[in-house]
Design a protein around this nucleic acid. Structure first.
Lengths: 235, 235
DNA sequence: GGGCAGGTTTGCGCTGGCGCAAACCGTTGC
DNA sequence: GCAACGGTTTGCGCCAGCGCAAACCTGCCC
């Protein structure tokens, strides 16, 4: 599982961190990358680990979850192909603030702290991309903080679902399918509620025909209805 | 209030964004800066505004608050001298995601989007500082998201107070004073609860002698007790 | 094909903390 | 000195949604 796979250059070019950079830079990026294929349910890193690396997901899906001082967990984000993860501690205290676990078999590339700084110094567009990526993430987390503080559970679940659709929705004949396998527990931890409430709400929506949930896969059939819930003012 | 004040060079050098940069760079930074003195309760920018600038606070204090679709507000952060604010939209969609209002008379410097990008391109250490600043913020917001999803109100208020102490605590004869003027409402919106709950909790702590609240100023006398509340497992 | 394990649904009771409303207090300005 | 205003405290009632527990479903492995 640590064996380097053969890798198409486009695969790395599709990572958000390396958008619009020169072929020469991309070449360096590829030379330094450590690429690994990981089975599902593999822990890539744990909260508190040191020796951090910058990770990019090429194929598959990953769940980033942070646990509080007591047992409770929240899902910080799900990672789809092309996205970076585990980059925050590179610029702060050098400890991962959350766990990363593959949801499905995945292909992941990573670079050490020193390598990434080297690349950023040599190719400023990479540094700019880092800023853009982190900035986008910051805005998203701020929005979620606002939601979780001000909105009812049902609205939060609705927004969580819509966020997943936007991030990883594939249009199919039956509606928009989310490509991650999602247990109720994951949806709950991602919307800041309990397994039970999430289950009740999703079941209700399924009964209403707004979505279908089969085998940990969600397919949204009436996104407009869910949007309506998400936007309902707190009456 | 738009008149440029005379400005000591150290004032800008003390901004977190311009730590450890060359004198030449600092000189450019200073030339481009727009400096303004603002009375208290001035709106620096509003949620949704375009024409964003990067702001740095030299003196005074600022509250950054985001309002949800309904009326409810949350305080994203308070700004102490030396800190940057309003920088997120530079790297995302070009719209401020929150309001910024001075809590006290303040002295603020700012740069346009073009100027900041110019400076980052010319002096890479500034770009690195941007990353460091945003990274730290991202981690902090993630921690808060985790707290607000998993902890009881009392713990959240405790953590909010401790966070303020760490950020803006001045040791005095009577204990550690927080330099911002804080209404109960501000504390509530910063810990993700209601005015009423925050008031009850702070009053209880004052009765216990853990802190003193006079004239919108908080002084912490028994930080250790508050720490204990913050860390209490959710029993 | 049968059993097992992990995931899901659902009922029921309870409680944290929110919402409302009214009184209170301290500052500021006239 | 008085009035007005912004902020704070406090009591009371209520309900969203959590906790627990038990049954149920479904895919997987032996």
């Amino acid at each position: 599982m640590t064996a380097n796979d053969r890798l198409a250059p486009q695969a790395l070019a599709s990572l958000e961190l390396f958008q619009d950079i020169s072929p020469a830079a991309l070449d360096d990026v590829m030379t330094l990358a450590r690429v690994r294929r990981l089975p599902r349910e593999t822990r890539i890193f744990d909260q508190g680990d040191t020796g951090v690396r910058a990770h990019g997901l090429i194929e598959g899906s990953v769940r980033i979850a942070q646990s509080g001082s007591d047992g409770a967990q929240i899902v910080m984000r799900f990672i789809a192909p092309g996205e970076m993860f585990g980059t925050v501690p590179l610029f702060t205290d050098g400890r991962y603030p959350a766990d990363a676990i593959t949801l499905t078999e995945s292909l992941e590339a990573s670079w050490s702290e020193a390598e990434l700084f080297e690349l950023m110094g040599r190719y400023p567009p990479i540094a700019i991309n880092v800023i853009r990526v982190i900035g986008k993430r910051l805005q998203e987390v701020q929005d979620r903080l606002c939601e979780v503080s001000t909105q009812r559970v049902e609205q939060r679940v609705a927004r969580a679902v819509l966020r997943l659709v936007r991030q990883a929705g594939h249009d199919t004949r039956d509606g928009t399918a989310i490509e991650f396998p999602l247990r109720r527990r994951d949806v709950a931890d991602f919307s800041g509620t309990t397994l039970h409430s999430a289950s009740r709400i999703l079941t209700a929506w399924e009964k209403a025909g707004w979505l279908v949930s089969r085998n940990q896969r969600l397919t949204i059939r009436k996104p407009f209805e869910i949007q309506r819930i998400a936007e309902a003012s707190a009456n």
